[in-house]
Simulated scan of single mutants.
Amino acid sequence: MTLSTPLLAAAPLLAGLIGPALLGGAPGRQQADQPAPRAVRTEIVEHVAARTADEQRRVLDYWTPERMAKALPISLLDIVTDGAGLLSDLTGRTGVRAAPDLSGGRVSPHASREALNLGPSGPRRHQAAARPQTNTAGSRWMTGGAVARTTGRVFLTVSGADFVCSASTVRSANRDVVITAGHCVKDGAGEWAANWTFVPGYGTGGLRPYGQYAARRMFVAGPWSRSGDDNYDVGMVALATSGGRHVADVVGTQEIAFNTARGGQAFGFGYPADPPYDGSHLVYCAGRMKADPYGESRDQGLACDMTAGSSGGPWMTTFDPASGRGTITSLSSFKYSDDHRTMYGPYFGDTVKTLFDTVEHA
């Protein structure tokens, strides 16, 4: 059996990849060579979050600057809760879900069960170049542009604990859609996240230059909801308006595409919160994507040092560093415990397209 840890914001103990986020999970061994029945591929599961104006206000009021500051990357979700959920089956399961903001890190058959610390080795600091690099495992994004507005931090609560993840706005019919990791929305077969809030362009000291948006409705694919299948670790959320304005009208959006050619150049973005990062800056990785060398998923890998808290951050192809615009074709999901330098993201196929077609009309 293999173990995997999502990129939630988890303590350095297990998956300190992405930051306090939801329990994202790694499922048991994936049968990537056998396509799922069509009924399974197109099944979409929905959760109504904050429907009324009063409920949305309650969510926004919940996230005080103090609570946001304390929603740090944590270790396994079952360490801060009662042990239930995706992380409770650490022994004998193919995958381990990390806390909200899942920085999924799974243990491959070639890795020791003890090698679960997904955090980077050493307090390295990444200095951004004068212009964006097309090949970097982790640098602070200093160029601005659309991506600095469309990417943001997600704050959520699971089993009474507060976590963080990353997400991006997407061009949609309702102008309300953001995309993130499935484990940043729902704990696999477990519970949905509560108090779900998106803060685009999050800045140092809890700066919220474009406001914050509560979730109205949340969606994941059936395989993620049933078993935390890493191949479907994608969550999409329809946000409520803020001050009567849709998020797309305030910060803009990125394009999204499905069934694209595998491989190629990609830029990945997120707000890693485990050391040497602190969640206050937008960070990016850039390079060529490659197939999962262990064959445990249909995901693609990208050389990336980002830690917990970056879960759900967008991966863009045909990205223009000058304008900060591109096309989202994947997102940060998990890392293998014996390879801290590679982040993996799900392939956006027919199921993710169906997911998007559903949420953009929600």
Rank of each mutant, 00 (worst) to 15 (best):
W224S: 07
W224T: 04
S225R: 12
R226Q: 15
S227E: 12
S227G: 10
D230C: 03
N231S: 02
D233T: 09
V234F: 11
V234C: 02
V234Y: 01
M236R: 09
V237R: 02
A238Q: 15
L239W: 10
L239A: 14
A240T: 11
S242Y: 13
G243T: 07
G243Y: 01
G243E: 04
G244P: 11
V247P: 01
V247A: 03
A248F: 07
D249S: 11
V250I: 14
T253A: 15
E255W: 06
E255R: 13
I256S: 08
I256W: 01
N259M: 10
A261P: 04
G264D: 11
Q265E: 10
P276I: 11
H281M: 07
V283T: 12
C285W: 00
C285D: 00
C285F: 00
R288T: 10
M289Y: 09
M289A: 09
A291R: 05
A291P: 03
D292P: 04
P293D: 15
Y294R: 10
R298L: 13
R298P: 02
D299F: 03
Q300C: 05
L302K: 13
L302M: 08
L302T: 13
A303V: 04
D305L: 12
S310A: 15
G312D: 09
M316R: 01
T317F: 01
T317I: 14
T318S: 14
T318H: 12
D320L: 06
G326H: 03
T327F: 10
I328C: 08
I328V: 12
T329S: 11
S330G: 08
